[in-house]
Computed example of a mutant assay.
Amino acid sequence: MPNSLFSRLRFVLVETSHPGNIGAAARAMKTMGFSELVLVRPRFADALRQDDAIAFASGALDVLENAKVVETLAQALDGVQYAAALSSRLREYSPPVVSPREFAAVVAPRADLQAALVFGSERYGLSNDSVMQCQALVNIPANPAYSSLNLAQAVQLLAYECRVASDSGPADQSASRIGFQGELASAEQVEGMYVHLEHALVELGFLDAANPKKLMPRLRRLFSRTGLETEEVNILRGIAGHVIAACKK
């Protein structure tokens, strides 16, 4: 099915250290029916061809062979409208926190939604900047005294929840309660809006570029709770444009 979640969900691994973990993640994905894998700056440039990656993939070589390697998370999220960062560590200014099951319930029913799951490195996880490029933060419920999962285990768990949500069919969609729903804005469109809005706030004198404090992270958190649509992003950018023009007069 061209619009099934299996063709709409991308798995992104950021700065992965061990090629074996990449291969194991590919195997976990294929076991649950997913195939789109993107690596952001893996430790080894030839990580996809490393012996450990091939060995741990164990039958999922097609996932490795079709995987992409990019330099930035923004490139990895190209075309994505709803990205979720995986982290066991909660952040003060993170986007909304959801469970794996809640994430799956959001992305499975929306046939028009391009989604991504973003996993950090084995040693450091994800940076705050990477988390803020996402619209949600997935926190896996685990033993609070030892909440560390292996990368491939985390991939397997999320892939499983997404498969179950896809197989169970559309659930109660809260979006249907708000009437017409437009196309969700892509990650690139939302990032462009933040840049434009920040420029407008600086021109207005509301934001001190030399001492920005936490204003933009707070605004990011606010907007990440809304699920911005393309038209809404365009409206906000239009407002920002008029503010900039008015300040220059």
Rank of each mutant, 00 (worst) to 15 (best):
M193G: 06
A67Q: 07
L126P: 09
S224Q: 06
P42T: 03
G238S: 02
R123A: 12
A83Y: 01
A111M: 10
L158F: 05
V164Y: 05
P95C: 05
Q50R: 15
T226P: 01
L215D: 03
V131G: 12
T31V: 13
A85D: 07
V14Y: 02
A55N: 10
E36I: 01
I244N: 09
S88M: 00
R237H: 00
F6E: 14
V243P: 01
Q114P: 01
A171M: 00
S94N: 03
L228E: 08
M132S: 14
P95Q: 10
D172M: 10
G179H: 04
V98G: 13
E232S: 12
R89Q: 13
N128L: 02
S174T: 06
L151V: 09
L117V: 07
D62F: 04
M1R: 12
M193Y: 06
M132G: 05
A57C: 15
Y160T: 14
Q135E: 11
G79P: 03
D46H: 03
A24M: 09
L73E: 10
V155Y: 07
R225E: 05
A246H: 14
S88F: 01
V12F: 06
A24Y: 01
S130P: 07
Y124C: 11
L126A: 13
E36S: 11
C162T: 08
Q114Y: 01
S99D: 08
L77W: 03
V190M: 12
A142L: 06
N234T: 09
V98L: 14
